[in-house]
Write a protein that binds this DNA or RNA. Structure first.
Length: 376
DNA sequence: AAGTCGGGGGG
DNA sequence: CCCCCAGACTT
């Protein structure tokens, strides 16, 4: 058991040295007894199909279980095999992802499916080196897929187990630091059994998410409480250390519903934009005190970006939307084109769509919200 | 080591 | 309002 001072916690001994083999065996066996009695019945736990496990792991990145479930089932109904995914148009994949966020996950999943068809005959690879080379799959996701789908003894480390291991090893340094990562990955490795790594890994995450909570962990219900040094010293609310978060900066956006003959002008996000690959209504950032209706500078920007002059009309709606570290004050206006066509050059891909066509397009969340307003 | 990428759940 | 989430990737 570790009894070193916090300042020395991150150095000197490898994590294996902190807990002996008997302690590790006790953790595994108590954990498995608890898990077999308390595991939630989740869709991706009913199968070991590598495609299903892979899809669930990608969707679950930075996304909570309850949010993922309906997306997971709808996605597999639409694209039941890796070959189906590889052959699907990107806009269908993004449409299935719409609302989940982190859309690059969907694009990399799609790209990886094509690679699997090309390089592995459509069969998900079972070797770590091949798996981690696929786009969108890092050390955690590779370990999760390999251990769950193929029973490969690969360690995992993610939000739940960072917290669990920090407490079990009483690590009070910064978990994201080099030393923290080394210690925590070492802990994950030390806990691995020779067989059944997938079950252990899922049990560790389940305990972390259901019992070893960020604040107010349920130590009374924890099967590992008697083995936990942090619990013994009552430090479970100080470990792991929390990092302060960056400030949120407010911005204003203008969203234009430009209609011409029952069609609306949409633009597709490209590299450098926020929602790459998703369609959006023409969107412009406003200066601080800018009034939408009488800014000639704004009119120039709009005309140059859309390829012709636009007359801004009445306000349709306004609301607030927070993304990453920006709080967007959104103002939606109706608008009409003044020339017969927008014929100037545009750096974005932009096209006119009917409402029926927009229904099938991948949009970002605010774009979808404005679409619904226009349908009323 | 810090930024970026989204959106919703829940206190 | 706040914190948090089965991370990966770039700078």
């Amino acid at each position: 058991m570790t009894r070193r001072k916090p300042s020395q916690q991150t150095s000197q001994h490898p994590p294996e040295a902190c807990h002996d083999a008997a302690w590790l065996r006790a953790v595994r066996s108590r954990l498995l007894l608890w898990y077999r009695a308390h595991a939630r019945d989740l869709p991706w736990r009913r199968t070991r199909d590598p495609y299903h496990v892979w899809l669930s792991e990608i969707m679950l990145q930075q996304t909570q279980v309850a949010t993922v479930i309906p997306y997971f089932e709808r996605f597999l109904t639409a694209l039941p095999t890796i070959a189906d995914l590889a052959a699907a148009p990107e806009e269908q994949v993004l449409r299935l992802w719409e609302g989940l966020g982190y859309y690059r996950r969907a694009q990399q999943l799609h790209s990886a499916a094509k690679q699997i068809v090309e390089m592995h005959g459509g069969r998900f690879p079972a070797e770590f080196e091949a798996v981690i080379q696929l786009p969108g799959i890092g050390r955690y996701t590779a370990g999760a897929i390999l251990s769950i789908a193929f029973d490969v003894p690969a360690p995992i480390l993610e939000a739940n187990t960072v917290r669990l291991y920090s407490r079990l090893w009483q690590f009070d340094g910064d978990p994201t630091s080099r030393a923290g990562q080394t210690l925590l990955w070492g802990a994950a490795e030390a806990l691995l059994p020779r067989r059944g790594a997938g079950e252990i890994n899922q049990a560790l995450m389940e305990l972390g998410s259901q019992v070893c909570l960020p604040r107010g962990p349920l130590c009374e219900a924890c099967p590992l409480a008697a083995l936990c040094p942090t619990r013994a010293e009552g430090l479970q609310d100080q470990i792991p250390r929390v990092k302060s978060k960056p400030r949120v900066t407010p911005v204003r956006h203008l969203l234009l519903a430009i209609e011409r003959r029952k069609k609306y002008l949409l633009r597709k996000g490209r590299d450098g934009d926020r929602w790459v690959g998703l369609w959006d209504f023409p969107r412009f950032e406003l200066a601080n005190g800018d009034r939408v209706t009488d800014s000639t500078a704004l009119a120039k920007v709009i005309a140059s970006e859309l390829g012709g002059p636009i007359a801004i009309g009445e306000r349709l709606a306004s609301w607030r939307h927070t993304v990453t570290r920006y709080r967007i004050e959104l103002e939606c206006h109706a608008a009409r084109v003044q020339s017969r066509e927008l014929r100037g050059k545009t750096s974005h891909e932009q096209r006119w769509f009917t409402l029926e066509e927009i229904a099938e397009l991948p949009l970002n969340t605010t774009g979808r919200k404005l679409y619904r307003l226009l349908c009323e």
